[in-house]
Amino acid sequence: MKAVVFSGTTEGRRFSKKLAALGAEVTVCVATPLGAEEQGEMAGITVHAGRLGPDAMAALLTGADLCVDATHPYAVDVTRNIRAAAAQAGVEYRRLLRARSPLPEDCVVFGTAAQAAEYLAGTKENILLATGAKELAAFAPLDPARLYPRVLPTPEGIAACEAAGIPHRNIIAMQGPFSCQLNKALIEQFHIRYLVTKDGGAAGGFAEKVQAAAETGVQLVVLRRPEEVGETEAGLFTHCQEILKWSH
């Protein structure tokens, strides 16, 4: 069985390794060298690093038995492209979902980063942006001196901060997920009053952010997760076992 896993997430790494252990021939696609570094090396797995357009995705999927989309829950455009590429290549597409987190009652929730930025425009205190480099442009209209973005320690992450006019002393370039203690230390160090985050689930350290916000009294601002349909890791793994059983 040949499977292509579009990954860059904890679930994608875990699932691709379980598939390879079953004897499947797995190609894992990640967008960045950092994703490849996190994936690591394992027999039965070939890693492809670099962003792909729909046509390149379809070419990579040609001859595969299964396409597994294990990309981040907020990577809506990527998921759309993968689904289209699988259809183009005539390969079965399956979406691996990350479980949602319960949201605390006292958090404020918005559908987009722009809406969150609009809400924050009416405030004066410091903001810890734990939403990733891609969302930074939406917060650029706010006073950059108030913004403390936590981004991946990559040239792209730093460049996104610079493009948004963030002072270098405010840039927190680190790779998560982070403990509650570290979140609290950053909140206290930079006198944070608002913590903006996505519901990244357990793999994204969401619970630790919720706890840190509760224990320091900062306002938690959550970007709502896009609605999507898919299946659990256990359900998809069972499906793969069935495919392998029939292919022998």
Rank of each mutant, 00 (worst) to 15 (best):
M1Y: 11
K2T: 10
K2C: 06
A3K: 05
A3G: 11
V4N: 01
V5R: 02
V5F: 09
F6W: 12
S7V: 00
T9Y: 05
T9Q: 10
T10A: 11
R13T: 03
F15R: 03
F15Q: 06
K18H: 14
K18Q: 13
K18D: 15
A21H: 15
V26N: 08
V26P: 09
V28N: 08
V28Q: 08
V30Y: 02
A31Y: 01
P33R: 05
L34G: 13
E38V: 13
Q39G: 01
M42G: 10
G44N: 07
T46F: 05
G50D: 08
L52Q: 11
A58C: 09
L61S: 01
L61W: 04
T62D: 13
D65K: 00
D65P: 07
L66R: 00
L66V: 09
V68S: 11
A70V: 13
A70Y: 11
Y74W: 08
V78S: 05
T79E: 12
T79C: 11
R80A: 15
A84R: 08
A86D: 11
A87L: 13
Q88A: 12
Q88L: 07
A89K: 04
E92H: 11
Y93L: 05
R94T: 00
R95D: 12
L96A: 09
E105R: 14
D106E: 15
C107F: 08
V108T: 12
V108G: 00
V109I: 14
F110W: 00
A113K: 04
E118W: 03
L120E: 04
T123L: 12
N126E: 12
I127A: 05
L128F: 12
L128P: 08
G132D: 01
D143L: 11
P144E: 06
R146V: 01
L147R: 01
R150F: 09
L152P: 07
P153K: 06
T154A: 03
T154I: 04
E156I: 09
E156A: 15
G157N: 08
A160C: 12
E162M: 06
A164Q: 03
G165V: 01
H168P: 10
R169A: 14
N170W: 04
Q175W: 06
P177W: 04
S179M: 07
Q181G: 13
L182R: 07
N183C: 05
N183Y: 08
A185P: 00
L186E: 12
I187R: 05
E188G: 06
H191M: 08
I192F: 05
R193M: 13
Y194E: 07
Y194L: 10
Y194G: 03
Y194N: 06
V196T: 05
T197G: 02
D199Q: 09
D199F: 07
G200Y: 02
G200V: 02
A203W: 04
F206I: 00
F206Y: 15
K209A: 06
A212M: 00
V221A: 04
V222Q: 03
R224C: 04
R224I: 00
P226F: 08
P226H: 02
E228H: 10
V229P: 00
G230W: 13
E231V: 00
T232E: 09
E233N: 06
A234N: 08
A234Y: 06
G235L: 13
F237R: 02
H239N: 01
H239W: 10
E242K: 15
I243L: 15
K245S: 14
W246E: 15
S247F: 12
H248Y: 13
